[in-house]
Amino acid sequence: MIKAPTALAARPVRVVLSSVFSDAHTWNLVFLQLLLEEHGCQVSNLGACVPEELLLEHCRDSRPDLVVISTVNGHGHLDGVRLARRLRADPDTAEVPLVIGGKLGVGVSGGPDSRRELLAAGFDLVVEDSDPQRLVGYLEGLRRPALPSGRTPP
């Protein structure tokens, strides 16, 4: 399916929402689903303890406009880096906008190194302060047709 660059402004943004494989928490995912739906998204919520393979397959099948990873068990940094590398290595998901947020490290904050590593691994946005407004802001950016996102239709 070919998407015109302006299409996102007119139709619901299709989001795949997921945790990482080691995290069984779900209220964060429930909250984000409601938030994203309130901002005009169509959300496919994969839930807790999602194996990387399952997420990858789901993205291949559904071709989302955005993938949001939310995790609060403190392993998000480690699991996130591996997950992003895997998604970026696959031609079907190499370009999809990819966001991670929550409580990503075991300390108070993962620190700049953790953030840099996540970005280097392929995330477009890392939200370590759990501020949902930053996700909403990013979403609005995706909708703006003029934004040079660098993404091209396959």
Binding site: N28, V72, G101, G102, P132
Partner: peptide, 10 residues
Amino acid sequence: PARLHLTDRR
């Protein structure tokens, strides 16, 4: 304020 640290302790 809206915060996300919702730990449903298992």
